[in-house]
Design a protein around this nucleic acid. Structure first.
Length: 289
DNA sequence: AGGCCTTTTCCTGGTT
DNA sequence: CAACCAGGAAAAGGCC
């Protein structure tokens, strides 16, 4: 049987980088309003009225992640702890500081920051994404589509609600960063970026109510119970993300059922299209203190 | 190269 | 009957 290529990306289930983030980042992350972070955050991050100079450490971290994602650079290839800085400190770094802190990737980071400082927008120089949706795509799909699609515009603007996972630290980075900038480790590593797991994709739709066109809704926000309103539409969107035009709710739901065993989801009996986040699902609570 | 992991695909059978 | 739900089985791909 010939099966369709799907361009699947996956992340080891066991990855966690909670212990790699500087304490200050985690503190910020824990205190952050998740809905703010996932919806308007990225656009605010790039906007003129939020100059890099004024970034918090957490925003620096966000920028770092998104820039790496844009360039398909493995996040583990740079020592994140060298960027435990706020925006002011970051803006004071010279080109040499960047290369010292991140090897060859430092040049890319320097370029990104320079663009943001002077243009208020990144990607003026080398991005191939056309038009007005560029920034939005970059921000919203930091690690999903660029690597496989030459033309990310296959996402129509209406589909550009945030499907992003970058705000969730425990899935985006895979392994401990090296303690010092090793030139070999710091080389640009062109491999497939971390994809988003299905449950994260679902979660991120839920966390963007204002931009989620009635696909999934919370049934019980505090308990993590949610319901699919447009099951096939969600499946189609998931399929698009995976470059798989034959995705259906039937198949998506099979993948969802595999999460029961791993306690990422809990079964909700007797209610059609209803699921509940389990103890191993992260990042969906309003406050995760 | 091979094993692990997360889906994807298909299927049988049951339920709403 | 259509749309779901439950899982088994096998395989696709990606990653290490």
């Amino acid at each position: 049987m010939v099966r369709q290529a799907s361009g699947v990306m996956s992340i080891p289930a066991t990855v966690s980088f909670d212990n790699q983030l500087p304490a200050s980042w985690m503190a910020h992350y824990n205190c952050a309003d998740v809905s703010m972070v996932t919806s308007g955050y990225t656009s605010r991050l790039w906007s003129q009225d939020h100059h890099p100079q004024n970034w918090t450490k957490y925003q620096v971290w966000e920028w770092l992640q998104q820039t790496l994602d844009m360039h398909q650079i493995d996040a583990t290839s740079i020592p994140f702890q060298n960027f435990d800085l706020d925006g002011r400190q970051l803006c004071n770094m010279s080109f040499q500081d960047f290369t010292r802190s991140a090897g060859s990737v430092g040049a890319i980071l320097f370029q990104s920051l320079t663009d943001l400082k002077w243009n208020g927008q990144y990607g003026q120089t080398d991005m191939v994404i056309p038009g007005d949706i560029k920034t939005e795509i970059d921000a919203d799909f930091p690690c999903s589509i660029l690597p496989f699609k030459e033309e990310p515009s296959f996402y129509s603007p209406s589909e550009l609600f945030d499907i992003k996972s970058s705000f969730q630290p425990n899935v985006t980075l895979a392994s401990p960063a090296p303690s010092s900038p090793d030139p070999k480790r710091s080389q640009v590593k062109r491999h497939n970026p971390r994809g988003t797991h299905l449950w994260e994709f679902i979660r991120d739709i839920l966390l963007n109510p204002e931009r989620n066109p009635g696909l999934i809704k919370w049934e019980d926000r505090s308990e993590g119970v949610f319901r699919f309103l447009k099951s096939e539409a969600v499946a189609q969107l998931w399929g698009k993300k995976k470059n798989n035009s034959s995705m259906t709710y039937e198949k998506l739901s099979r993948a969802m059922r595999y999460y029961y065993k791993r306690e990422i989801l809990e079964r909700v009996d007797g209610r059609r299209l209803v699921y509940k986040f389990g103890r191993n699902a992260r990042g969906w609570r309003e406050s995760e203190k």
